[in-house]
Design a protein around this nucleic acid. Structure first.
Lengths: 231, 231
DNA sequence: ATGACCAAGTGATCAGATCAATTTCATGTC
DNA sequence: GACATGAAATTGATCTGATCACTTGGTCAT
């Protein structure tokens, strides 16, 4: 019954490359080896190497830059990731996505209030400063992105990398569409104020409040959207 | 500042292929086109097509079966997925993963108690029946997998596909290692009883109880593991 | 110093061929 | 007629080798 594990040449190649990266302790952004060099190293043809590279590239473990080289991507060693080829979602699917965020992020905020990773707190602070500037400048597109960043930084503050990955995934997929919704949702000053309140609660280590504020924040967005979809 | 969107040939190819699948309304498992046929259709060389296919294959949108053909994979249209090339996690990372599950799954159980998707309830029931059989048969490996299935079915019952994907992702990555932990954790009859209690709470529509039971269930596992890692 | 320019390195794509696994179907035996 | 056998067609896997296109670093003239 247990299917024979037929490791294709490609599986081996991909695994070996990840092994190489790990062995050399390469960090995100570091240059890897050239395609030709890899082909020679593993005694396989160039197209085969490239197929393996494409596989790794698809999940963000590597990056191929034309004319430059192969580099270590941001998703090396990640467990959960967003589908980089996600199609345009239906309205229902988008509501589900927001609902998922409203369910996951509040308890993460509570955890963040207990862990309070320094770097992440600084990042959240920086995001809020930048958000205020963007509101003043009227650049609503970048503002929406920075606001997403705030949510990601909040998850980072939890100190749990897996949770951060989950939150990152649900805030990255269908960004375009999520941003549209946030534009509809609208009140930018209120959003900023709520974010400030969340950060303050996290800083104070008040996990209950942080959770409550985050829930109220996301439920607010959700309520607006639900009205639009189910009038 | 706004990076020029340089769509490589590959990006276009991959997108076009997804478009083809969508247009033809192909379902998971359906056969797609042959590599040669795709090469001719898009007027590109075979290796190029294959690179695009590999990219789609990496995220589970397609499947290439030697000698048979190209088929639609299970992850088409998914938003969140588990890194199929995740490396072996450190002990700390594994604890984090469990912690993430303990934080996410209980509220999902609560939602499931409110939604109660029929199919998922039947699946949970089936999982428990099978689990009982496997306990009797002493097949602990398959038992552990079925128990994971139960958690996935529970998430399905929430009726929220995105949440189901998130839970599926965290229960699929590093399965091997998670299963080992569950083996350590041990008491199989207790696990089964707890699963039964959760299902009953969901059936009864008691969201508070379902959440509480699920939390207790996962925290129990987590406590055991934490003792092992930090003695 | 500054800028234009050239050359080496590297990824991107192509073309065609061969090997290997699966599926299909004609064949033949019982 | 049912079923096992095996050859042929289909299809993915890999190779070889070449050419095009992009990036980068250094050279050289100003």
């Amino acid at each position: 019954m247990t299917a024979v594990v037929r490791r294709s040449l490609l599986d081996d190649l991909a695994a070996s490359m990840l092994g190489l990266i790990a062995d050399r302790k390469l960090a995100v952004g570091d240059q890897f080896e050239s395609v030709r060099s890899l082909a020679e190293r593993f005694k396989v043809a160039v197209p085969t190497v490239r197929e393996a590279l494409r596989r790794l590239e698809a999940i963000g473990a590597l990056e191929l830059r034309h004319g430059s080289g192969v580099y270590v991507g941001p998703n090396v060693g990640r467990l959960v990731l967003a589908n980089p080829l996600a199609l345009k979602p239906t309205a229902d699917r988008l509501v589900e996505l927001l609902q998922a965020r409203a369910l996951i992020e509040p308890p993460v905020a509570a955890l963040a209030a207990k862990a309070r990773s320094e770097d992440a707190l600084a990042q959240m602070e920086a995001d809020l400063v930048q958000a205020a500037e963007l509101i003043a400048a009227g650049d609503h597109d970048r503002l929406a992105e920075i606001n997403m960043d705030f949510h990601r930084a909040l998850a980072q503050a939890s100190g749990n990398a897996t949770l951060a990955e989950v939150v990152e995934s649900v805030t990255v997929v269908n960004v375009r569409e999520q941003l549209e919704i946030l534009h509809i949702h609208g009140d930018r000053e209120t959003d900023l104020a709520e974010h400030h309140a969340i950060l303050a609660a996290v800083r104070a280590g008040d996990d209950v409040l942080a959770e409550q504020l985050t829930r109220a924040h996301l439920d607010g967005v959700l309520a607006v959207i639900n009205d639009r979809v189910n009038p």
